[in-house]
Write a protein that binds this DNA or RNA. Structure first.
Length: 382
RNA sequence: GGGUAGAUGGCGGAGCGGUCAAUCGCACCAGACUGUAAAUCUGGCGCCUUCGGGCUACGGGGGUUCAAAUCCCUCUCUACCCA
C-alpha cells in the first residue's frame, strides 16, 4: 500500500526527478522530509497549471512529510527570469502584499496550510551582505546563464536581459539553504533555479536537495496555460465558470487533465466511452475539488440545462434598469461594454428576449423579461 | 562617453503627408455547425449617433501644412553597436 503511494508520488504529475535514487532512499528511510515549494506572488490568481506542484505537495503531505512553503515576497520584487520571453517587471511592494493574501488562501484549497511551514524569503534575503552574494555568485558562471534557453533566445532576438535577473536563481537557491530542504518541487521551467539550490546547499555544507519537476499543462485552447493567454481555469473561478471552462477543453487533453490535475484513480474512469461524458466527469471532479460536491452538481445541472437543452436557466441574475430600452439595458447591465457593441450584437442576432431573437435596435423591454446575450449570459429584468 | 535604430489599438506587427479609426496575425464578441463555451466556417471588433454624421486616438509637449501616425523641434523611455 505505502509502496503504491510512493510509486504514484514519483510518477503522477512528474516530469523529471533529480536525483531519483537519492529521493527513493530518503522516502524509504522513514524520515520526515522537508519538501520545499516556493512561489512568487506575481499574479493574484492560481490557475490549474500551477496547481500541479501543489497537488504534488499534497501527496507528500499525505505521506506525513513537511511542506515548507516559501512565499517569494523578496524574490517577487526582483522578478524571475524563467519561462518568460521578455523581462519581468519588478513588482511594487504593495502589489506583492495584495497578491500574497489571496495566494495562501488559494493554496489552502489543496494542502493543509496549518500543517505546513510558511516562510517569507525577505526574512533572510533582505539581510544578505554584498560579500555573501559575491560568495554565492562565484559558484556560477555567466556561461551557464547565457546558455539557458530562455536567456539565449532573448539575447539572440536582441531583447534586453538585465543583470538583476541573473541574481534570481541565487536567491531561490539560497532559500533552500535557509530552510534545509530535502526536496524541492517546481515546474520544468524552474529547472535551472532548482538546480541552483543544490549547488548552494553544497556550498553551505548541506546535502543537496532532490528535485521533482512537474510538466506544464496546456490551457483551454491547447497553448500553454498562462494568464497572459487568458486560457486558464483558476482556483477562484466560480463553480459554473469552472465547470463550463472545463467543458470547453479540447477532447485530446481530457486524460492529461485527469492525470495531472486530479487524483482520481484513473482505473475508475475507464467505463466512459463517450468523450462528452468523460469530460463532464472531469468538469465535475475539478469543480468538486475546489468547491464542493454539491456545488459541482449544481454547476453540472446548470450546464446541461443551458447548453445541452438550451433552456433558460432557473437561477438568472436580476437587473433593475433605469431606462427600459434594449440598448441601455444591455450596456447598463454590463452585458456589453458600449452601445456600439450592443447594436452590433443585436444586428448579428445575438440578443434574445424571452427566447425570441431581437431584430429591432430600438425596442423596449417589459418587466419580468429574460434577456439573453450570446449563449451563456442571461439577466432577468425586475 | 560616442553612435545607430525604435516607441502605433488588449498583445505582436504594417503604414512613412491626404483614399487611415489605421493591412494582417493572436486574443475577444456574435452566428452556423456540434455531444461541447472544442475544431471548422461566416460576420464583427475605438466611442457617440435622430444612421446623415460627429468625437477622441498612433510615447509626452510644441511647430510646419488646406491636410500629419506619417515632416521639423524638444522631452521621456527602450534596444543594439563601439569605447
Amino acid at each position: 500500500m505505502k509502496n503504491d503511494k510512493i510509486k504514484e508520488l514519483l510518477t503522477r504529475g512528474v516530469e523529471e526527478i533529480i536525483d531519483k535514487s537519492s529521493l527513493e532512499k530518503k522516502l524509504k528511510s522513514g524520515k520526515q522530509l522537508r519538501v520545499k515549494f516556493g512561489t512568487d506572488p506575481t499574479s493574484p490568481n492560481i490557475h490549474l497549471g500551477r496547481s500541479i506542484p501543489i497537488l504534488k505537495l499534497k501527496d507528500f503531505q499525505d505521506l506525513g512529510h513537511k511542506i515548507v512553503f516559501i512565499v517569494g515576497d523578496f524574490t517577487g520584487l526582483i522578478g524571475d527570469t524563467s519561462d518568460k520571453e521578455s523581462e519581468r517587471p519588478m513588482l511594487t511592494e504593495q502589489t506583492v502584499k495584495e497578491n500574497l493574501k489571496t495566494y495562501i488562501k488559494q493554496a489552502g484549497k489543496i494542502i493543509d496550510i496549518d500543517k505546513a511551514e510558511i516562510h517569507y524569503n525577505s526574512k533572510w534575503l533582505g539581510k544578505l551582505k554584498y560579500m555573501d552574494i559575491g560568495h554565492q555568485a562565484d559558484s556560477f558562471s555567466l556561461n551557464e546563464f547565457i546558455s539557458r534557453e530562455n536567456i539565449s533566445k532573448r539575447l539572440n532576438n536582441g531583447k534586453r536581459v538585465s543583470l538583476r535577473e541573473l541574481l534570481y536563481p541565487l536567491m531561490q537557491g539560497y532559500d533552500s539553504v535557509e530552510v534545509k530542504a530535502d526536496v524541492e518541487i517546481g515546474g520544468t521551467d524552474q529547472r535551472f533555479n532548482l538546480l541552483a539550490g543544490r549547488d548552494l546547499q553544497r556550498l553551505y555544507g548541506q546535502e543537496p536537495q532532490d528535485i521533482i519537476t512537474n510538466p506544464l499543462v496546456e490551457g483551454l485552447d491547447g497553448r500553454k496555460m498562462s494568464s497572459s493567454f487568458g486560457n486558464t481555469i483558476n482556483l477562484f473561478d466560480l463553480p459554473n465558470d469552472m465547470f463550463g471552462k472545463t467543458m470547453s477543453l479540447r477532447d485530446d487533453l481530457i486524460m492529461k487533465y485527469f492525470n495531472l490535475l486530479t487524483r482520481i484513480d484513473l482505473e475508475t474512469i475507464k467505463e466512459y466511452d463517450n468523450p462528452r461524458d468523460l469530460k463532464m466527469k472531469l468538469a465535475f471532479e475539478i469543480t468538486k475539488m475546489y468547491h464542493s460536491e454539491r456545488e459541482a452538481q449544481i454547476a453540472q445541472d446548470y450546464f446541461v440545462k443551458t447548453f445541452s437543452k438550451k433552456e433558460i436557466p432557473s437561477d438568472v441574475p436580476t437587473f433593475k434598469p433605469t431606462q427600459y430600452d434594449i440598448l441601455s439595458i444591455l450596456v447598463d447591465s454590463k452585458l456589453v461594454p458600449s452601445k456600439a457593441e450592443a447594436r452590433r450584437t443585436i444586428l448579428q442576432g445575438g440578443v434574445k428576449i424571452n427566447g425570441m431573437v431581437v431584430k429591432e435596435i430600438s425596442c423596449n423591454v417589459d418587466k419580468d423579461s429574460t434577456i439573453q446575450k450570446g449563449k451563456i449570459k442571461f439577466i432577468k429584468i425586475v
